[in-house]
C-alpha cells in the first residue's frame, strides 16, 4: 500500500512549529520520523490514542514536530514517564523515542527493567553511535577505536548491541533496521506497535556531522551506502559464520515471543488479593 506523503504531512505534523526541522541536512532522524508516521497512518489510529514520549537528544526532538499527545521528558527517563502513563491509562498506545545515549547510558537501567517488566510499550531507539546534540562525545554504542570529542585518539572501550541487550533483558519483540531500509523500518514499527508486550525497534542511523566526519566515513549519502552494503537479513545471517558477520548489521525481526504483560498480571493480582481478603 502506497501512502500519500501529503496526507502524512498534513495530518500528523505540527505546522505551527518551525519547519524545516532542527536536524542537520541528511540526518536519519527525519527518515525515522517519516517511517513512524507511515506506520501510524497504516494502523488507522486516531491522534488522541497515541502518546509519544521522549527524553533528551537529537532524536528526542521528534515529538515536538508531531501532532499527538507528546511528552518531552528528562534525559534517559522517557521510559519511566511512559511506564507511569501506561499504568494510569492502559488504553493509550504509548511509543517512546530515544537515542542510543538516552536509552542505554543514562537511561540504561530504565531500559532493561522496562524490558524485564514487559509493559505494553513500544520503544524506538535511534542509534547513531554518538551523542550528537551535546557535541560528539562517545556513547555506549560508539565502536572500539573510533574517534569522538572525548576519544580523540581512538575509543578504548567496547560497544554493545542494543537489540541483543533487549533480547536478553526479556523484551517480547525486538527488531532492527537501518535508515536506508525505510520501507522495512515502517513495517517493523507497525509490527512493534501492534505487538502486545514490550517492543523494541533499534534503528541504525547516521550522524555524519559528529560521528562520520571525525571517523572519515563521509557524508549522509556515503553512510547510507555503507548501511546498504553491510546490512544482512536475519535469514541470511543464520547461514553466515561469526567471522563473516563481523562488521555487518543484522536487520529484521530478531525476537518475537508471547509473554504475560505486567498491567494485565497486576489486574489479576488485585483480583486474587480481593478474593483472599473476602475469605478472611
Amino acid at each position: 500500500m502506497t501512502i500519500p506523503a501529503q496526507a502524512i504531512r498534513h495530518k500528523y505534523l505540527r505546522h505551527n512549529k518551525k519547519f524545516p526541522h532542527v536536524w542537520c541536512p541528511g540526518c536519519g532522524n527525519g527518515i525515522v520520523m517519516a517511517a513512524l508516521l507511515r506506520a501510524i497512518y497504516r494502523m488507522e489510529l486516531s491522534k488522541d490514542e497515541i502518546v509519544l514520549a521522549s527524553g533528551i537528544g537529537c532524536s528526542s526532538r521528534m515529538p515536538t514536530y508531531t501532532d499527538f499527545n507528546t511528552l518531552h521528558t528528562t534525559h534517559g527517563r522517557a521510559l519511566t514517564f511512559a511506564t507511569g502513563l501506561k499504568l494510569a491509562k492502559p488504553s493509550l498506545n504509548v511509543v517512546t523515542i530515544m537515542g542510543d545515549g538516552d536509552a542505554t547510558a543514562i537511561g540504561g537501567n530504565h531500559f532493561i527493567h522496562a524490558a524485564r517488566r514487559n509493559l505494553n510499550l513500544t520503544a524506538i531507539i535511534v542509534n547513531n553511535s554518538i551523542y550528537g546534540m551535546t557535541g560528539g562525545q562517545y556513547s555506549p554504542t560508539t565502536p572500539f577505536g573510533s574517534k569522538s570529542t572525548t576519544s580523540l585518539y581512538g575509543h578504548i572501550e567496547h560497544d554493545f548491541s542494543i537489540a541483543e541487550l533487549a533480547v536478553t533483558a526479556g523484551a517480547s519483540f525486538v527488531a532492527r533496521a537501518t535508515v536506508y531500509h525505510a520501507a522495512l523500518m515502517d513495517k517493523l514499527i507497525e509490527q512493534a506497535m501492534r505487538k502486545r508486550g514490550f517492543a523494541v525497534v533499534e534503528v541504525i542511523s547516521n550522524c555524519h556531522v559528529q560521528y562520520g566526519r571525525r571517523n572519515k566515513l563521509g557524508g549522509a549519502v556515503e553512510m547510507l551506502k555503507t548501511y546498504r552494503d553491510n546490512a544482512v537479513t536475519v535469514k541470511k545471517a543464520e547461514k553466515l559464520s561469526a567471522e563473516e558477520l563481523a562488521g555487518k548489521i543484522t536487520i529484521g525481526v530478531l525476537t518475537d515471543r508471547e509473554m504475560p504483560i505486567s498491567t494485565e498480571e497486576y489486574k489479576k493480582v488485585r483480583q486474587r488479593a480481593n478474593e483472599a481478603e473476602g475469605e478472611l
Binding site: A5, L13, F19, P20, W23, N29, G30, A34, A35, A182
Partner: peptide, 16 residues
C-alpha cells in the same frame, strides 16, 4: 519507486 519520498529526511518530496 518512492525511494526519494521515503528517504527524504525533511518531508520535502512528493511523488504522486
Amino acid at each position: 519507486c518512492r525511494f526519494c519520498e521515503m528517504h527524504c529526511p525533511d518531508f520535502a518530496i512528493t511523488v504522486c
